[in-house]
């Protein structure tokens, strides 16, 4: 099945999504890699300068340039999600994240959290940075750029029809990666 969803996505829509489905999302997404995960968890929800529950989480360290005082996205594909496995269950619980965009898949802790709190992990084609950048309409903001540097900062993007995203882990405890492991020789 193919879905076109607006962010924030309602939980009953999340429940409809099954592994192997294709999704395109429109709305706000924020980037967070290892360092931003760390920082956000340390600060806690009330001390954050933005509300992550209104957005999708994008595992991405984008490349941008500043032109006429405005940030432009040059290339912005996903980064390897498994590095975030150590934080992601807490992240989902604390910040009410229900759509994660990344690549390469995540593990048991995330799978359980997606089931418990109703969320999906979706895969965007790794390395397709130019293509992804084309779907970003506007850079709405950036946080912790000085402390963390360009790849690790939290960037807020407004995206339109961002995808194709493959539902790789759904809210029913299914994972494409686990299904594949079962069939391996």
């Amino acid at each position: 099945m193919e879905y076109h969803l607006n962010i924030p996505v309602k939980n009953d829509e999340i429940r409809k999504l099954k592994i192997g489905d294709i999704v395109y999302v429109t709305g706000k997404i924020f980037t967070a890699r290892d360092e931003a995960h760390h920082m956000m968890l340390d600060k806690g929800k009330n001390a954050l300068p933005f509300d992550p529950s209104e957005m999708a989480l994008f595992h991405c360290g984008p490349l941008l340039k500043k032109e006429r005082n405005k940030w432009q996205v040059v290339s912005a594909g996903p980064t390897t999600s498994s590095r975030m496995e150590i934080f992601e269950d807490k992240f989902i619980e604390k910040f009410k994240i229900n759509v994660i965009i990344g690549k390469g898949g995540m593990g048991d802790r995330t799978e359980k959290a997606l089931k418990k709190y109703t969320g999906v992990y979706t895969a965007y084609t790794g390395g397709a940075g130019a293509l992804a950048a084309d779907k970003v309409e506007e850079v709405l903001g950036v946080y912790w750029l000085e402390e963390l540097g360009m790849p690790e900062a939290a960037w807020i993007f407004k995206v339109k029809e961002f995808g194709p995203l493959v539902v790789a882990m759904d809210s029913h405890g299914k994972s494409i990666y686990k299904e594949l492991k079962k069939q391996m020789p």
Binding site: P62, L63, S75, A76, G77, T79, G127, G129, A130
Partner: peptide, 8 residues
């Protein structure tokens, strides 16, 4: 003429 991947 843009980097194909953000990880240059």
């Amino acid at each position: 003429k843009r980097p194909m991947c953000q990880d240059t």
